[in-house]
């Protein structure tokens, strides 16, 4: 059992998710020792069984709400947390499991699980902000570890995190990349996607998949018009907007415009 140290207490919580975002914190290998010098990692089950009781100064919440139990648990987490930051596409937008929101969840349950009767789940996958007030949302699937550290630094310094909500294009251009859509005709979601990944895919000549969710003022309709010129049909359009951030309102609305079943 850890002894209280007087340092700010950090907690990391998991809801419906793949663990990739909290793993981003463990991936901060060079910074971890400094981090534990600054905060008490008070509750982080992926890293340690040893836990310290709340309240917590900063809670990082990963995952979406997909069960009755979690819908209750998130309120307990909120009550124990001075500052609550959601991390990743699941926590901020419902995640890939938000695909259930477009259909009957029973279709998935019966298709995936051999004994569907054992599965107790909510009809929709919802972001944390649909249930409790959230102090900051860090988008990304998974989140960028440097941005995660910035969020922690900002919390320690009691300031706003410096996380630009501009398009991926701006990062892409600052990196000196040639635009894959203009130069190759490769469909790319960069213009409507939130910066943060450092324009990873376009840097390797791939179009952006939209892992970081919608940017601050996404004009998906205009981009769709251009994707059609690149031979995208309705099926392609629904598919491209329905990935990790399928239920983020901007992407959701756009995919539904092209979904005949909607």
């Amino acid at each position: 059992m850890n002894e209280p140290s007087g340092k700010p207490k950090l907690a990391v919580w998991k809801f419906s998710s793949c663990d990739g975002c909290q793993l981003s914190l463990l991936s901060c290998e060079d910074e971890l020792l400094t981090l534990v010098g600054q905060v008490d990692i008070a509750y982080f089950l992926e890293a340690s069984r040893a836990t310290v009781e709340g309240p917590y100064d900063l809670s990082l919440v990963e995952g979406s709400i997909t069960t009755e139990q979690d819908a209750e648990r998130i309120h307990r987490v909120r009550r124990m947390s001075r500052r609550l930051v959601t991390i990743g596409a699941c926590a901020t937008a419902g995640g890939i499991q938000g695909l259930r929101n477009f259909t009957d969840v029973e279709d998935f349950v019966t298709a995936v699980y051999p004994t569907p009767a054992y599965v107790s789940t909510l009809e929709h996958s919802t972001p944390i902000s649909a249930h409790v007030p959230v102090d900051f949302e860090l988008q990304g699937c998974p989140v960028n570890k440097y941005q995660l550290l910035e969020v922690i630094r900002a919390a320690l310094g009691d300031r706003r995190p410096n996380i630009p909500s501009e398009s991926v294009c701006q990062e892409c251009k600052r990196r000196g990349n040639t635009c894959v859509m203009v130069a190759y005709g490769t469909p790319c979601l960069g213009p409507v996607t939130h910066a943060g990944c450092g324009a990873l895919c376009p840097s390797y000549n791939r179009g952006c998949y939209g892992c970081y969710g919608p940017m601050e003022s996404p004009n998906t309709e205009a981009l769709t018009g251009w994707l059609r010129k690149l031979d995208y049909d309705d099926v392609d359009l629904v598919r491209v907007y329905r990935t990790f951030n399928a239920s983020a309102p901007a992407f959701r609305n756009e995919s539904e415009r092209h979904d005949p079943s909607a």
Partner: peptide
């Protein structure tokens, strides 16, 4: 405005656009 993506590509490629933002960063230890 209906067509504009507000992505900022035009300003990035423009050879005269000069605007910048200034950001302060600090290490974890402060």
């Amino acid at each position: 405005a209906e067509r504009c993506l507000t992505c900022g590509n035009c300003t990035m490629v423009c050879p005269t656009c000069f605007c910048t933002s200034v950001e302060d960063t600090a290490d974890l230890a402060g």
